[in-house]
Design a binder for these strands. Structure first.
Lengths: 75, 75
DNA sequence: TTAAAACACAACGGATATGTTGTATTTCTC
DNA sequence: GAGAAATACAACATATCCGTTGTGTTTTAA
């Protein structure tokens, strides 16, 4: 399933960015008024998040939204 | 209200790209196995689309996904 | 090794995205 | 202006997101 792979890759990328910032799922969640479980589902690719949700996550990570989206091949 | 502005800008950007390609909402929709009304809701900012939906739209427009959200990420 | 912290999993409920059908309005072409 | 094409609007059904609670599992730190 192309979709599952896409979402898993997206989640892994977000996790890498978060870990690069040295913050926990809980810290990221609270920074954008969400909770740990919500971030966990995102990072494990269990959901197909809305663009605005990702916009909020990008804000919490202090990166551009496009940064979350770029393919690894482009970095 | 920030959300509504974000989604409206995203929709307008997608519409500009589609019109730049010289195709109709119906043509774009059919190219990605959706229908015209779905694209219409997207372009008018009436919905908060999922990232995978936008991925499909990007494919239909033959552009990178990041292209669709690049401007909005700079708001 | 034990306790705490971090992360994962499941389920439930309200909200909403999306596919779909039908139709109205606007825009284009003649 | 008439007819066609393109776009917009509404409503319904189904699926799923997301917030939330509860709890299980893994990792870290002492």
């Amino acid at each position: 399933m192309q979709k599952e792979v896409f979402l898993k890759n997206l989640g892994e990328r977000i996790r890498e960015i978060r870990e690069g910032k040295g913050i926990t799922q809980k810290q990221l969640a609270h920074a954008i008024d969400k909770d740990q479980q919500s971030i966990q589902r995102l990072e494990t690719g269990k959901i197909n998040p809305s663009i605005y949700y990702l916009h909020e996550v990008a804000h919490g990570l202090e990166v551009e939204l496009a940064t979350l989206i770029f393919n690894d091949s482009k970095l």
